[in-house]
């Protein structure tokens, strides 16, 4: 009999825990800020946010194929819109949680100049970027090089990461001298955390409007709704801003 009680207690605990968890698909550029936000969220609301990081396009494919995510924090506006139109996102739940900034970055503190001339001088072998087909930051990098008239010239040196985290890894390990990554990956509280960078000017790429959407699997559940609300709050916004994102 005590065993049964124990089993019942265990089951209840598990059921309780499940009810208060939210499965979140997070665009890779938001990795560090979102870990911080999830910790605050858990402390303040008691709900636990389980985070998966990856390329927005890959998450789209996973969600369309039934992945159990309840909230998506995308690196663009199109994917959440498309999910909503296809009935996979909850209508009216979308909002912009950040506007991303693209940077050209090197782990070497002397390599990238503040004007980005290094791209024209071309004294590097590999240029890392995220796969433009699945990662909005990769697409933005393509657009910027296109506007600069350097796309054809630089293309043979591309090394593509599956997502922006992998693109950054190529550069961090020194295998690619340079890479187009998200400002949020190398910036904290007004300072570059390592290496050297060029802030790609806003007029070279369409704004990276990053939207959040409540997914169909998270409809009418307390934890996903709480997370959506929390992301709109001042605490979350302060964290997002501290990584160099703009906010609306």
């Amino acid at each position: 009999m005590p065993r049964l009680t124990l089993l019942a207690a265990l089951l209840l605990t598990v059921a309780g825990a499940v009810a208060d968890e939210v499965q979140v698909a997070v665009a890779a550029n938001l990795m560090t800020p979102m870990q911080q936000i999830a910790a605050l969220f858990e402390r303040e609301t008691g709900h636990k946010a389980l985070l998966s990081f990856g390329a927005t396009g890959k998450f789209y494919a996973q969600i369309a194929n039934g992945a159990p995510f309840e909230v998506l924090l995308a690196a663009d506006g199109e994917t959440p819109l498309r999910l909503e139109k296809e009935g996979l996102g909850v209508a009216g739940s979308r909002f912009t949680y950040a506007i991303g900034k693209l940077v050209l970055w090197s782990a070497d503190p002397d390599r990238v100049d503040a004007g980005g001339a290094v791209l024209r001088i071309g004294n590097f072998r590999h240029l890392a970027l995220a796969n433009p087909k699945t990662a909005p930051y990769g697409a933005a990098a393509m657009e910027a090089m296109n506007k600069l008239g350097l796309l054809a010239e630089l293309q043979p040196r591309f090394v593509q990461g599956e997502n922006i985290t992998q693109a950054q890894q190529f550069v961090v390990t020194g295998n690619a001298e340079l890479g187009f990554i998200a400002l949020s990956q190398v910036y904290k509280d007004g300072k570059l955390t390592a290496g050297s960078m060029w802030m790609v000017p806003d007029n070279l790429y369409p704004p990276i409007v990053q939207d959040a959407v409540l997914l169909a699997k998270g409809r009418d559940k307390p934890a996903p709704a709480a997370l959506m609300a929390y992301l709109r709050g001042e605490r979350a916004k302060a964290v997002i801003r501290s990584y160099g994102y703009e906010l609306r």
Partner: peptide, 11 residues
């Protein structure tokens, strides 16, 4: 993959 990149990278 990250550690392989580190080990096989220039450093």
């Amino acid at each position: 993959g990250f550690y392989l990149l580190l080990v096989m990278g220039p450093h």
